[in-house]
Simulated assay, not measured.
Amino acid sequence: MTIALLVAALLMGFFGSPHCLGMCGGLVAAFGLSMKDVSPAKRRGLIATYHLGRLLSYASLGLIAGLIGTTVLAPVMVGNNIPRILLGLVLVFVGMTMLGAPFLTKLERLGMRFWQALAPLRKKVFPLTTFPRALTAGLLWGFLPCGLVYGALLIAVVGHEPLTGAVLMFAFGLGTVPMLVATHETVSWLRNQIGRLRLRQMNGAIMMLSGLAVIVVPMAMSSMHGGHSSHGGDMQMDHSSHSAMISDAGTSAHHDMSQMNHTMTPEMAPNMDHSMHDMSAMPSEHNMNNEHTATMEHAH
């Protein structure tokens, strides 16, 4: 797991939290009403406890998603580029969802059926006057249907291992905490700033570009590396061919000399030695010059 992927999950939760506030606002209000009779200090502790339960629920879902990714997808994700390509496609998909594409609405409807089935269990945790009840409420809260949560779970699926999926989902949950624990005035300010600056759309665009980069950049680098390797191979072949030519020339010369030695007959050898002896017996050029000088002086 890279730091970039962890930061992406955290920012996804933070910039998508206005959507979470719209989905979870009623539930947060119900929690607040059920704690109206407790002291302010205990109230803060109960709020921290049910948010901890929600993050643990997200982490558990991420663990299951990562386990699915390592078991179901394992046969097609070994020894190839499929994990990287799949991660890039998921980032593009989640980015488009944050830009407003209604890809996960049907999945939200399916999740709503499960949430309604938990209604009898949810009623038992009210009022939130004890820490076990607050923790249970937070654990159940993690199953509230949300397209943004499902998008984060897709990232956890391609996170290569269950622990990575759990950490990614925990980081995603941390990103949603500031919006959900803020006061009414702070919530309004945060929502206005995120809406005015289009921070959610910007984050979605960044995630899309990151996904495309994850897919395209390594492929381009591999293509460039392959071209350099091919050029290096051609140079090596040329060098090998040149060496082979030199070797062949040396072998041919050695073969020709051996041929000459082989074709020389025994009768030719003495004659050749005799010729060499006659050549050695011939006066040298220096002696001939001395004799010529002496003759000229005598004649004079």
Rank of each mutant, 00 (worst) to 15 (best):
M1R: 00
L5N: 10
F14L: 15
P18C: 08
P18R: 08
H19G: 14
H19L: 11
C20Q: 08
M23V: 12
M23Y: 05
V28A: 09
L33T: 13
M35N: 04
S39D: 15
P40W: 08
A41P: 12
A41N: 12
R43I: 10
G45W: 12
L46I: 12
L46D: 07
I47F: 05
I47S: 04
T49S: 12
S60D: 04
L61G: 11
L63W: 12
I64W: 00
L67W: 14
T71A: 01
G79R: 05
L86P: 06
L86D: 02
L89V: 11
V90P: 05
L91G: 05
V94M: 12
G95C: 05
M96L: 11
T97H: 00
L99Q: 04
A101E: 00
A101F: 02
P102T: 03
F103H: 00
T105A: 06
K106Q: 13
E108N: 07
L110G: 13
W115P: 00
W115A: 03
A117R: 10
A117M: 13
L118K: 00
F126L: 15
L128M: 07
L128D: 11
T129D: 15
R133T: 01
A137P: 07
A137S: 13
G138C: 04
G138D: 08
L140N: 02
W141N: 13
G142A: 10
G142C: 03
C146I: 01
C146E: 01
C146H: 03
L148P: 04
L153N: 01
L154I: 05
I155N: 02
V157L: 12
G165N: 01
A166H: 00
F172W: 07
G173Q: 13
A182E: 12
T183F: 04
T186E: 09
L190F: 11
N192T: 13
N192R: 15
I194T: 07
G195Q: 13
A205R: 09
G211F: 09
G211W: 04
L212T: 09
A213I: 15
M219P: 03
S223E: 14
H225T: 14
S229G: 09
S229F: 07
G233W: 09
G233P: 00
S247Y: 08
D248N: 13
A249P: 00
G250V: 14
G250I: 14
T251K: 12
S258I: 09
M264Q: 12
M264D: 03
T265I: 08
H274T: 15
M276P: 06
M276T: 14
H277Y: 10
P283F: 11
S284K: 10
E285V: 06
E285L: 06
E285A: 14
H286K: 10
H292I: 12
T295C: 12
